[in-house]
């Protein structure tokens, strides 16, 4: 009976009920704990074919390990320069690079910088929400930020916070929707390891609307003096133009020099360049010292004789 139970247990494990297939490694991961598994297996007198290709190791992700102590400090210590914080090295180098690029692309366009903390699926923090908030406040010190806690392998379990310098933590259905819908879309679009990348991309896109709502544009419209028809006078466009010029000064200077060099070369070759005809001994003929060439001539006596006719005549003469 005992043996039957054990065989059933093994079948249950290998058929996927208790094991999950990782797309990243292509290996079987147990979820019952290494010690228990080993204990059970040693009691068994399994045939050799059962062991062929089998590897037993503990999968940390499934153990609901508590994030505390030093590990906790790594999440609430210094601000990560790249915006990505993965102290447990859950992501591989390639994934890390992709996520960092996405964060950088987001930060370039947005006034709400993105910070992504990566945790393993099923992990829990040994902090209450208030503690997390107070730690984040200490970290960001009244800066704008969107902080994500992403549980790798389960995008729908994501949570996070949006902070604005003066207002502190922003709450409301828009923020909830931002996280929920980004997670939902990511899980619908792709599966496996690409889900996090998809989530960050979706989140970055969706955060635009939140940013529009929360943050007043830096360059607000000016209160220009208006004429009697209520239309603003056009002096603003000059300021805009000058601002554009200032912001692109290096490009403009380079373009100017490139154009100047081009113009100088054009003028030099067309107007100033000296063409020197080489001189020396050349064969003479017909008793002439200077030249004895004969070229085709053109007639202009009759408008009905076209240049084409004359060209064809010259060609046939050459033949």
């Amino acid at each position: 009976m005992k043996r039957l139970v054990i065989y059933f247990f093994l079948w249950w494990c290998f058929s996927g009920s208790a094991f999950s297939q990782s797309a990243r490694s292509g290996e079987m991961h147990g979820s019952q704990g290494l010690a228990v598994t080993e204990e059970i297996l040693t009691e068994l007198d399994l045939p050799d074919w059962c062991w062929a290709g089998a590897h037993i190791y503990e999968e940390v992700e499934r153990n609901f390990r508590l994030v505390d102590g030093e590990l906790l400090d790594t999440y609430f210590g210094k601000l990560p320069a790249s915006g990505l914080n993965d102290p447990q090295h859950i992501l591989d180098d390639e994934q890390r690079q992709v996520i960092e690029e996405l964060i950088a692309a987001h930060d370039m366009k947005s006034a709400l910088p993105l910070y992504v903390n990566v945790l393993a699926h099923g992990q829990k923090m040994a902090l209450s929400e208030d503690d997390v908030k107070s730690k984040l406040s200490g970290m960001f010190k009244e800066k704008n930020a969107m902080v994500i806690f992403y549980y790798y392998g389960y995008s729908r379990g994501v949570n996070g916070y949006v902070m604005l310098d003066e207002q502190g933590f922003i709450e409301g259905w828009e923020v909830d929707e931002l996280f929920l819908k980004s997670a939902r879309d990511a899980s619908l679009q792709v599966g496996g390891d690409a889900q996090m990348e998809s989530f960050v991309r979706e989140f970055s896109k969706r955060s635009f609307w939140l940013e529009q709502k929360l943050i007043t544009p830096v360059r607000a419209e000016k209160n220009l003096p208006t004429n009697e028809h209520g239309k603003s006078n056009s002096s603003g466009s000059w300021d805009d133009f000058m601002e554009t010029v200032r912001s692109h000064s290096l490009t403009l200077v380079l373009a100017f020099w490139a154009l100047a060099a081009g113009a100088w070369y054009f003028l030099w070759s067309r107007k100033w360049r000296k063409f020197i005809l080489p001189q020396g001994e050349v064969p003479t003929r017909l008793g002439a010292d200077n030249g004895a060439n004969v070229s085709h001539t053109i007639e202009f006596s009759d408008a009905t004789v076209s240049l084409t006719d004359q060209y064809e005549k010259a060609q046939s003469r050459e033949l």
Binding site: L277, P278, Q279, V282, P283, T284, N290, G291, A292, N293, V294, S295, H296, T297, I298, E299, F300, S301
Partner: peptide, 10 residues
Amino acid sequence: KRVGLSYGYY
């Protein structure tokens, strides 16, 4: 009513 060009040896 004809026009042509003569070139030196060079």
